[in-house]
Amino acid sequence: MQVYLVGGAVRDALLNRKVVERDYVVVGATPEKMLSQGFTQVGKDFPVFLHPKTQEEYALARTERKSGKGYTGFVCDASSSVTLEEDLLRRDLTVNAIAQDNYGKLIDPYGGKKDLENRVLRHVSEAFSEDPLRVFRVARFATRYAYLGFTIATETMALMQSMAESGELSTLSAERVWQETKRSLLEKTPHVFFTVLNQAHGLNDWFTELESNLDTALASLKTAVDLEKAENESFVKDTSSETPLPESSDSETARLITRFTALLSHLGEEDAKQLCSRLKVQNQVSEIVILACKFKDFLLTMQNSPADLLALFNGCDAWRREERFTLLLSAFAPYAHSKGVDWQEQQKRIENALAAAKQVNVQDIIATGVKGPEIKDALNRAKLSAIASITD
């Protein structure tokens, strides 16, 4: 029984990047032997075990044979006779097919180290084409390592194009595609993900609404990244700190919402709904995107009327969902900037109008004797008057 460190941990260490998690492959073992040593089995489709102390993943060396469509259509062989080289051969990219033994020696049968040095993402074997999810994974890796100058090998891009044109990408689950998309959106250069998919002819199945105006979408996404960078630099300057505070999960979600909103804000409401529905985007994100697309004309117009502002507040339910509305205004900033709008001034105007309208008390209106359906009309008239008093 031999244990090797594999995959991302080896790759990132060679790139001098922080190693977040470690995965191991075990050669010459059986499930029974792993269990007898205190490991806990967690893999359903193939034997993966958690170390009794570190909880790190240890997978038995395995081979895979295509048996059906999609990324789940594989037959696995995880017998004790499978070699390390056979296990590495099934992996997607050469840079992910490097192993390291307990003494620090690299086992690199497919030239991954050289490709790392040359900044190339290259498929290990033709079996790459058997898993359509790899088109999205390569796009994500290209996004993550774009700042280091990585490119995709010509033959790998050709293979990705062939996979996209075969229709296999449509067999993927929405959850898997969204997961790759979400992770890419949070990288330093998220626009690379969509640029690569476009080059691979891979937008059609999942992002068809972006195809006709991709340049506009990516320009807005880049603006979102630039605004974040400027805000972060301002924070560091103001606090005289060399490093910003660590991100919370809430701030990461806000960043995801802002970037995805920036990407889709040029779409119409129905197109945005279709794309979010197809990807099964969580409501917390899709609600903001769809509101941005629905009300973008109201949001962009600097001299909109009190009636338009009231329609905006009512349509977004800003009365009961003020936190969501605030997030919408923040997420809309990149698109507004890309359209040349002074968003700081516009956002202040909208927020002041909302604050004035919220001062209207429905109980005061009822106290005047208004009843039934007339209450809503009277309330809207009072809110309109309050908005007009500060916008005229």
Rank of each mutant, 00 (worst) to 15 (best):
L5D: 08
G8H: 01
V10P: 13
D23W: 05
A29F: 08
T30L: 03
S36N: 11
P47V: 04
F49Q: 07
K53I: 04
A59H: 03
R65W: 01
T72H: 11
D77W: 01
S81A: 13
V82T: 10
T83Q: 11
E85W: 03
E85K: 14
D87N: 15
D87E: 12
L88V: 11
D92F: 08
A97N: 08
G104P: 12
G104Q: 09
K105F: 12
Y110S: 02
R119Y: 07
H123Q: 12
S129Q: 10
S129V: 05
P132V: 02
F141I: 04
A146I: 00
L148Y: 10
A153F: 07
M163N: 04
A164S: 15
A164P: 00
S173R: 06
R176H: 11
Q179S: 12
L185F: 04
E187A: 13
K188C: 00
Q199S: 13
A200Q: 10
H201V: 03
G202P: 08
L203Y: 11
W206C: 07
E211H: 10
E211M: 14
L218N: 05
L218P: 12
S220M: 05
T223R: 06
D226C: 02
L227K: 11
K229T: 14
N232V: 07
E233C: 01
D238V: 01
D238R: 11
E242T: 09
T243L: 09
T243I: 03
S251I: 11
S251A: 11
L256C: 05
T258G: 00
R259I: 00
L263F: 07
L264F: 03
H266V: 00
A272Q: 04
L275R: 01
N283S: 15
S286E: 08
I288P: 03
V289S: 04
C293F: 05
F295I: 06
K296V: 01
L312D: 06
N314L: 12
A318R: 08
A318C: 05
R324M: 11
R324V: 10
L328V: 06
S330M: 02
F332S: 02
P334N: 00
V341Y: 04
W343H: 11
N361Q: 13
Q363G: 14
I365D: 12
T368E: 14
G369I: 07
G369K: 00
K371M: 07
L379F: 15
N380C: 01
R381S: 12
S385N: 13
S385F: 06
S389I: 00
S389N: 14
S389Q: 13
I390M: 06
T391M: 10
